[in-house]
Simulated scan of single mutants.
Amino acid sequence: MFDDSRLESTELTDSETLRWLATAGARIRRAAQTRPIGHLDRADRPRGILVLGTEARLVRAVLEPACPVPFMAWPGPGLPAWVGPLDLAVVLGGHDSPEWVLQCAGEAARRGASLIVAAPEDSALAGAIAGFSGASLIPTLDSDPMAAAVAVLAQLGGLGLGPVVHPEQVAEAADLVAEVCGPSSDLSENPGKGLALELADSLPLVWGGTVLAARASRRIAEAFRRASGRPALAADASELSGLLRAIPERDLFADPDDDADVRPALVMLDDDLLPGKLRDTAAGLIRQAESVGVRVTRISSGPEELEATAIERYVTLLQRGLYGAAYLEIGLS
Protein backbone atom coordinates (compact mmCIF):
# COMPACT_ATOMS: atom_id res chain seq x y z
CA MET A 1 0.00 0.00 0.00
CA PHE A 2 1.14 3.52 -0.81
CA ASP A 3 1.68 5.64 2.30
CA ASP A 4 1.66 9.33 1.37
CA SER A 5 2.81 10.33 4.87
CA ARG A 6 6.26 9.02 3.94
CA LEU A 7 6.54 11.82 1.38
CA GLU A 8 6.56 14.38 4.19
CA SER A 9 9.06 12.58 6.39
CA THR A 10 12.07 14.51 7.64
CA GLU A 11 14.19 11.48 6.73
CA LEU A 12 13.73 12.11 3.00
CA THR A 13 16.92 14.15 2.99
CA ASP A 14 18.79 10.88 3.66
CA SER A 15 17.53 9.30 0.42
CA GLU A 16 20.43 8.50 -1.89
CA THR A 17 18.13 8.58 -4.92
CA LEU A 18 16.86 12.07 -4.11
CA ARG A 19 20.40 13.33 -3.47
CA TRP A 20 21.49 11.88 -6.80
CA LEU A 21 18.66 13.66 -8.63
CA ALA A 22 19.40 16.92 -6.82
CA THR A 23 23.02 16.94 -8.03
CA ALA A 24 22.22 16.35 -11.73
CA GLY A 25 22.96 19.99 -12.56
CA ALA A 26 26.34 19.82 -10.85
CA ARG A 27 27.30 16.72 -12.81
CA ILE A 28 26.32 18.38 -16.10
CA ARG A 29 28.50 21.40 -15.24
CA ARG A 30 31.45 19.22 -14.26
CA ALA A 31 31.34 17.16 -17.46
CA ALA A 32 31.05 20.26 -19.66
CA GLN A 33 33.79 22.22 -17.87
CA THR A 34 36.37 19.43 -17.93
CA ARG A 35 39.07 20.24 -20.48
CA PRO A 36 39.24 17.59 -23.27
CA ILE A 37 42.42 15.56 -23.56
CA GLY A 38 43.86 15.61 -27.07
CA HIS A 39 42.41 17.44 -30.03
CA LEU A 40 40.89 16.86 -33.44
CA ASP A 41 43.47 17.06 -36.24
CA ARG A 42 40.91 18.44 -38.68
CA ALA A 43 38.67 21.39 -38.03
CA ASP A 44 36.87 21.12 -41.37
CA ARG A 45 33.44 19.57 -41.75
CA PRO A 46 33.49 15.74 -41.76
CA ARG A 47 31.92 13.71 -44.52
CA GLY A 48 29.68 11.90 -42.04
CA ILE A 49 29.21 11.35 -38.30
CA LEU A 50 28.75 8.04 -36.52
CA VAL A 51 27.74 7.97 -32.84
CA LEU A 52 27.67 4.85 -30.69
CA GLY A 53 27.56 3.77 -27.08
CA THR A 54 25.60 5.01 -24.08
CA GLU A 55 22.99 7.70 -24.88
CA ALA A 56 23.85 7.59 -28.60
CA ARG A 57 20.14 7.87 -29.38
CA LEU A 58 19.83 10.98 -27.24
CA VAL A 59 22.68 12.59 -29.18
CA ARG A 60 20.96 11.58 -32.41
CA ALA A 61 17.61 13.02 -31.31
CA VAL A 62 19.18 16.41 -30.63
CA LEU A 63 21.70 16.49 -33.46
CA GLU A 64 19.89 14.93 -36.40
CA PRO A 65 17.43 17.76 -37.21
CA ALA A 66 20.25 20.33 -37.47
CA CYS A 67 23.30 18.31 -38.50
CA PRO A 68 24.68 19.56 -41.86
CA VAL A 69 26.23 16.17 -42.77
CA PRO A 70 24.92 12.59 -42.85
CA PHE A 71 24.50 11.29 -39.30
CA MET A 72 23.92 7.81 -37.89
CA ALA A 73 23.47 6.31 -34.43
CA TRP A 74 25.08 2.89 -34.69
CA PRO A 75 23.80 -0.16 -32.73
CA GLY A 76 26.88 -2.28 -33.43
CA PRO A 77 28.42 -4.72 -33.22
CA GLY A 78 30.95 -3.96 -35.97
CA LEU A 79 32.08 -0.63 -37.38
CA PRO A 80 30.44 0.27 -40.72
CA ALA A 81 32.72 -0.18 -43.71
CA TRP A 82 32.28 3.42 -44.85
CA VAL A 83 33.93 4.99 -41.78
CA GLY A 84 37.31 6.39 -42.76
CA PRO A 85 39.68 9.39 -42.59
CA LEU A 86 37.02 11.87 -43.74
CA ASP A 87 34.54 10.94 -41.01
CA LEU A 88 33.94 11.67 -37.33
CA ALA A 89 33.13 8.95 -34.79
CA VAL A 90 31.56 9.90 -31.47
CA VAL A 91 31.73 7.28 -28.71
CA LEU A 92 30.08 7.49 -25.28
CA GLY A 93 30.72 4.95 -22.54
CA GLY A 94 32.04 4.10 -19.12
CA HIS A 95 33.94 1.43 -17.24
CA ASP A 96 31.38 -1.17 -18.30
CA SER A 97 31.32 -0.37 -22.02
CA PRO A 98 30.67 -3.51 -24.10
CA GLU A 99 33.62 -5.06 -25.89
CA TRP A 100 32.18 -4.19 -29.30
CA VAL A 101 32.18 -0.48 -28.40
CA LEU A 102 35.87 -0.67 -27.48
CA GLN A 103 36.65 -2.50 -30.72
CA CYS A 104 34.72 0.04 -32.80
CA ALA A 105 36.51 2.96 -31.15
CA GLY A 106 39.92 1.39 -31.74
CA GLU A 107 39.07 0.46 -35.31
CA ALA A 108 37.82 3.98 -36.12
CA ALA A 109 41.09 5.39 -34.80
CA ARG A 110 43.14 2.93 -36.88
CA ARG A 111 41.21 3.91 -40.01
CA GLY A 112 42.15 7.54 -39.41
CA ALA A 113 38.71 8.84 -38.48
CA SER A 114 38.48 11.79 -36.12
CA LEU A 115 37.21 10.76 -32.70
CA ILE A 116 35.34 12.40 -29.85
CA VAL A 117 35.12 10.02 -26.88
CA ALA A 118 33.27 10.72 -23.63
CA ALA A 119 34.42 8.29 -20.95
CA PRO A 120 36.24 8.15 -17.59
CA GLU A 121 39.94 8.82 -18.05
CA ASP A 122 40.88 5.47 -16.49
CA SER A 123 38.38 3.38 -18.48
CA ALA A 124 39.20 0.77 -21.10
CA LEU A 125 37.35 2.92 -23.66
CA ALA A 126 39.73 5.83 -23.06
CA GLY A 127 42.62 3.39 -23.34
CA ALA A 128 41.34 2.12 -26.68
CA ILE A 129 42.01 5.48 -28.35
CA ALA A 130 45.09 6.48 -26.34
CA GLY A 131 48.04 7.46 -28.51
CA PHE A 132 45.99 8.12 -31.63
CA SER A 133 46.20 11.60 -33.12
CA GLY A 134 42.90 13.19 -34.00
CA ALA A 135 41.20 11.79 -30.90
CA SER A 136 39.65 14.04 -28.26
CA LEU A 137 38.70 12.54 -24.89
CA ILE A 138 36.10 14.24 -22.68
CA PRO A 139 36.78 12.83 -19.18
CA THR A 140 33.43 12.08 -17.54
CA LEU A 141 31.93 10.48 -14.49
CA ASP A 142 31.08 6.86 -15.18
CA SER A 143 27.74 7.17 -13.39
CA ASP A 144 25.96 9.84 -15.41
CA PRO A 145 25.58 9.17 -19.15
CA MET A 146 23.25 12.17 -19.56
CA ALA A 147 25.90 14.61 -18.35
CA ALA A 148 28.37 13.06 -20.79
CA ALA A 149 25.87 13.41 -23.64
CA VAL A 150 25.36 17.11 -22.85
CA ALA A 151 29.13 17.67 -22.92
CA VAL A 152 29.39 15.92 -26.30
CA LEU A 153 26.46 17.91 -27.71
CA ALA A 154 28.08 21.15 -26.57
CA GLN A 155 31.34 20.25 -28.33
CA LEU A 156 29.56 19.22 -31.53
CA GLY A 157 27.52 22.43 -31.48
CA GLY A 158 30.74 24.42 -31.10
CA LEU A 159 32.08 22.69 -34.23
CA GLY A 160 29.00 23.73 -36.20
CA LEU A 161 27.75 20.15 -36.45
CA GLY A 162 24.55 20.62 -34.46
CA PRO A 163 22.50 23.12 -32.50
CA VAL A 164 24.29 25.31 -30.01
CA VAL A 165 24.01 23.74 -26.55
CA HIS A 166 24.81 25.77 -23.43
CA PRO A 167 25.57 23.28 -20.66
CA GLU A 168 25.05 25.93 -17.97
CA GLN A 169 21.46 26.47 -19.15
CA VAL A 170 20.88 22.71 -19.24
CA ALA A 171 22.29 22.45 -15.71
CA GLU A 172 20.01 25.27 -14.59
CA ALA A 173 17.02 23.37 -15.99
CA ALA A 174 17.98 20.39 -13.83
CA ASP A 175 18.49 22.69 -10.82
CA LEU A 176 15.01 24.20 -11.25
CA VAL A 177 13.44 20.74 -11.17
CA ALA A 178 15.42 19.90 -8.03
CA GLU A 179 14.17 23.11 -6.42
CA VAL A 180 10.46 22.42 -7.00
CA CYS A 181 10.66 18.63 -6.54
CA GLY A 182 13.04 18.50 -3.59
CA PRO A 183 12.07 16.74 -0.34
CA SER A 184 11.54 20.03 1.54
CA SER A 185 8.87 21.15 -0.92
CA ASP A 186 5.33 20.65 0.40
CA LEU A 187 3.25 17.80 -1.00
CA SER A 188 0.62 20.20 -2.35
CA GLU A 189 3.22 22.16 -4.36
CA ASN A 190 5.68 19.43 -5.34
CA PRO A 191 5.08 18.04 -8.87
CA GLY A 192 7.26 15.00 -8.17
CA LYS A 193 5.29 14.02 -5.07
CA GLY A 194 2.04 14.80 -6.90
CA LEU A 195 3.02 12.49 -9.75
CA ALA A 196 3.77 9.70 -7.28
CA LEU A 197 0.34 10.15 -5.68
CA GLU A 198 -1.42 10.02 -9.04
CA LEU A 199 0.38 6.82 -10.03
CA ALA A 200 0.34 5.12 -6.61
CA ASP A 201 -2.26 2.53 -7.65
CA SER A 202 -1.82 2.63 -11.43
CA LEU A 203 -0.05 0.98 -14.33
CA PRO A 204 1.54 3.91 -16.22
CA LEU A 205 1.19 4.21 -19.99
CA VAL A 206 3.67 6.93 -20.98
CA TRP A 207 3.52 8.91 -24.23
CA GLY A 208 5.78 11.61 -25.63
CA GLY A 209 4.92 12.98 -29.05
CA THR A 210 8.21 14.57 -30.04
CA VAL A 211 11.40 12.57 -30.60
CA LEU A 212 12.98 13.80 -27.37
CA ALA A 213 9.78 13.44 -25.33
CA ALA A 214 9.50 9.86 -26.60
CA ARG A 215 13.09 9.27 -25.52
CA ALA A 216 12.30 10.65 -22.07
CA SER A 217 9.14 8.53 -21.89
CA ARG A 218 11.14 5.31 -22.19
CA ARG A 219 13.52 6.33 -19.42
CA ILE A 220 10.63 7.39 -17.18
CA ALA A 221 8.68 4.18 -17.77
CA GLU A 222 11.79 2.18 -16.87
CA ALA A 223 12.10 4.17 -13.63
CA PHE A 224 8.42 3.53 -12.79
CA ARG A 225 8.92 -0.23 -13.27
CA ARG A 226 11.91 -0.27 -10.93
CA ALA A 227 10.14 1.87 -8.34
CA SER A 228 6.88 -0.06 -8.14
CA GLY A 229 7.64 -3.57 -9.38
CA ARG A 230 4.60 -3.20 -11.64
CA PRO A 231 4.39 -2.95 -15.42
CA ALA A 232 4.86 0.45 -17.04
CA LEU A 233 4.92 1.00 -20.78
CA ALA A 234 6.24 3.74 -23.05
CA ALA A 235 4.94 3.36 -26.59
CA ASP A 236 3.72 5.25 -29.63
CA ALA A 237 0.17 6.49 -29.98
CA SER A 238 -1.14 3.58 -32.05
CA GLU A 239 0.05 0.99 -29.53
CA LEU A 240 -1.35 2.91 -26.57
CA SER A 241 -4.64 3.42 -28.41
CA GLY A 242 -4.93 -0.34 -28.90
CA LEU A 243 -4.37 -0.93 -25.19
CA LEU A 244 -6.93 1.70 -24.22
CA ARG A 245 -9.52 0.08 -26.49
CA ALA A 246 -9.08 -3.17 -24.58
CA ILE A 247 -9.66 -1.59 -21.16
CA PRO A 248 -13.18 -2.09 -19.76
CA GLU A 249 -14.97 0.96 -18.44
CA ARG A 250 -14.49 1.62 -14.74
CA ASP A 251 -17.16 0.18 -12.48
CA LEU A 252 -18.64 3.18 -10.65
CA PHE A 253 -19.71 0.91 -7.79
CA ALA A 254 -16.34 -0.80 -7.31
CA ASP A 255 -14.64 -0.49 -3.94
CA PRO A 256 -11.95 2.23 -4.38
CA ASP A 257 -9.78 0.43 -1.81
CA ASP A 258 -9.88 -2.87 -3.70
CA ASP A 259 -6.26 -3.85 -4.42
CA ALA A 260 -7.38 -5.86 -7.45
CA ASP A 261 -8.59 -2.70 -9.18
CA VAL A 262 -5.19 -1.50 -10.37
CA ARG A 263 -5.87 0.31 -13.61
CA PRO A 264 -3.72 1.99 -16.23
CA ALA A 265 -2.99 5.71 -16.09
CA LEU A 266 -2.07 7.70 -19.20
CA VAL A 267 0.99 9.88 -18.63
CA MET A 268 1.36 12.61 -21.27
CA LEU A 269 4.70 14.37 -21.77
CA ASP A 270 4.53 17.96 -23.05
CA ASP A 271 1.18 17.41 -24.77
CA ASP A 272 0.53 21.18 -24.63
CA LEU A 273 3.59 21.98 -26.76
CA LEU A 274 2.88 19.71 -29.73
CA PRO A 275 2.51 21.02 -33.28
CA GLY A 276 -0.34 20.33 -35.71
CA LYS A 277 -1.24 16.68 -36.15
CA LEU A 278 0.62 15.59 -33.04
CA ARG A 279 -1.64 17.83 -30.97
CA ASP A 280 -4.65 16.08 -32.52
CA THR A 281 -3.08 12.70 -31.75
CA ALA A 282 -2.58 13.67 -28.12
CA ALA A 283 -6.16 14.94 -27.83
CA GLY A 284 -7.44 11.65 -29.28
CA LEU A 285 -5.50 9.60 -26.73
CA ILE A 286 -6.81 11.74 -23.89
CA ARG A 287 -10.43 11.42 -25.08
CA GLN A 288 -10.03 7.67 -25.41
CA ALA A 289 -8.58 7.35 -21.91
CA GLU A 290 -11.27 9.51 -20.32
CA SER A 291 -14.02 7.55 -22.08
CA VAL A 292 -13.08 4.39 -20.14
CA GLY A 293 -12.27 6.12 -16.86
CA VAL A 294 -8.49 6.01 -17.18
CA ARG A 295 -6.75 8.77 -15.24
CA VAL A 296 -4.73 11.23 -17.35
CA THR A 297 -1.71 12.89 -15.78
CA ARG A 298 0.85 15.19 -17.30
CA ILE A 299 4.55 15.96 -17.06
CA SER A 300 5.47 19.35 -18.49
CA SER A 301 8.79 20.96 -19.35
CA GLY A 302 7.30 24.42 -18.85
CA PRO A 303 5.37 26.97 -20.90
CA GLU A 304 6.25 27.65 -24.52
CA GLU A 305 7.17 31.28 -23.83
CA LEU A 306 10.18 30.17 -21.82
CA GLU A 307 11.82 29.36 -25.19
CA ALA A 308 13.89 26.55 -23.70
CA THR A 309 16.03 24.50 -26.08
CA ALA A 310 15.16 20.92 -26.93
CA ILE A 311 17.81 19.43 -24.63
CA GLU A 312 16.74 21.68 -21.76
CA ARG A 313 13.15 20.49 -22.15
CA TYR A 314 14.33 16.88 -22.32
CA VAL A 315 16.25 17.21 -19.06
CA THR A 316 13.27 18.89 -17.37
CA LEU A 317 10.86 16.14 -18.47
CA LEU A 318 13.25 13.37 -17.51
CA GLN A 319 14.11 14.79 -14.10
CA ARG A 320 10.46 15.43 -13.21
CA GLY A 321 9.59 11.87 -14.18
CA LEU A 322 12.52 10.45 -12.22
CA TYR A 323 11.53 12.45 -9.14
CA GLY A 324 8.01 11.04 -9.45
CA ALA A 325 9.41 7.51 -9.64
CA ALA A 326 11.65 8.15 -6.61
CA TYR A 327 8.73 9.34 -4.50
CA LEU A 328 6.62 6.44 -5.74
CA GLU A 329 9.25 4.00 -4.48
CA ILE A 330 9.44 5.81 -1.13
CA GLY A 331 5.65 5.73 -0.69
CA LEU A 332 5.51 2.01 -1.50
CA SER A 333 8.49 0.98 0.64
Rank of each mutant, 00 (worst) to 15 (best):
P163Y: 02
N190F: 10
L161T: 13
A148V: 02
D201E: 15
G162E: 10
G192N: 10
E172L: 13
A178I: 01
P163M: 03
W100Q: 04
W100A: 09
C181V: 08
S123N: 01
G94T: 08
A174C: 02
A171C: 01
S114Y: 04
A109H: 00
I116F: 06
A196N: 14
L141T: 09
L141H: 01
V117L: 09
V90C: 10
I129V: 14
A130M: 01
A109D: 02
H95V: 03
L187I: 15
A149V: 08
G157D: 10
L125H: 00
A108E: 09
A135Y: 04
L161W: 11
V90F: 03
A105R: 04
F132S: 13
G93N: 07
P145F: 06
A128D: 03
E179Y: 10
G194T: 14
N190H: 13
L156H: 11
A148L: 07
G192V: 05
V91D: 09
S202L: 06
G194Q: 15
A171F: 06
K193A: 08
A200G: 15
L92P: 11
E168N: 05
A151L: 08
Q103N: 03
A124I: 08
A149Q: 04
L153N: 07
S188Y: 11
L125D: 03
L88G: 15
L137D: 09
G194I: 11
A109Y: 02
G112H: 05
G106D: 08
V90T: 12
L159M: 15
P191R: 10
S123H: 02
A171Q: 08
V152D: 12
G192D: 13
G112C: 02
A113R: 06
D186N: 13
E198K: 12
L137Q: 07
